[in-house]
Amino acid sequence: MANKKISVNPKSRRLMVHETVTAYLFLLPFLIFFVGFVLYPMIMCIITSFFDATMGREDIFIGFGNYKELFADPVFWKALWNTLIIVLVSVPVTCIFSLWVASAISKMPVAATSAFRCIFYLPVVTGSVAVTMVWKWMFNNYYGIFNYIGQATGMIDQPINWLGDPKYALGCIILILLTTSVGQPIVLYVSALDNVDKSLVEAAEGDGATQMQAFWKIKWPQIMPTTLYILVITTINSFQCFALIQLLTSGGPNNSTMTIMYYIYYNAFKLYRYGYGNAMGVILAIVIAILSAVQFKAGQEK
């Protein structure tokens, strides 16, 4: 049997073309921004990483020279290690704490839930500089409230230089990061828990399931997409921890709070080593991409 040629009404074809053009025109503003502020910088970052680029002279192509230097740079490894510690501590703690708070406040009356949501979201909407400065005062070696309380209660004999002592500085950074990170996950978890099918929970409880069983068997699978999103976003945010470091420690003392993001800034803006900084940016992007892919894969399998 011969194939029958499908004829398209010219009017329908015009309509399709019009709709396609319209769609692309609507997408155009975003595409311009995406190309200009995401795609182009990314491509430039990769290209520049193969050059010895600095201010005031032509860039010199050095192939993988920056990458070779990077892997032999002890400060880079220290920064990568610190960044991984921040991620490994802050991501699970943020997720677990947010889920716990969301579970607790989602059962409260609507007004109380809203109030707590606002309270936990405040550090997110407050400027990071303002929040960081308040923490800086609290950690102050000479008049900070932590030392005051510690000495008043007899927990410490001498004031602790929280941000100036390598033993404590990274912990302080992680603590501040946690307070600014939990707001959004809490709001998302509260919404996700509200959307869980109540009839399923009631049916399970009617069949004798404990609250814990109902949570893990009914609620947890339904909020998994939210969990996955929170994991990915928190991981990326933790990897890109910069403002806190810049405002509080500048990577010190003795590189104990140096992160990859701050080391990129330090090399690019303070030492004018644009190629070297970009090479670090490429490595960081690869690490984040791999971790995000793993998280997505793990989330899909669940």
């Binding site: 025109l25 609507f26 311009i32």
Partner: peptide, 17 residues
Amino acid sequence: KKLIALALAVVMVLSLG
């Protein structure tokens, strides 16, 4: 409706500029 949509898209692009 398509015409209006097109016009709106053009306005958006121009407004960016």
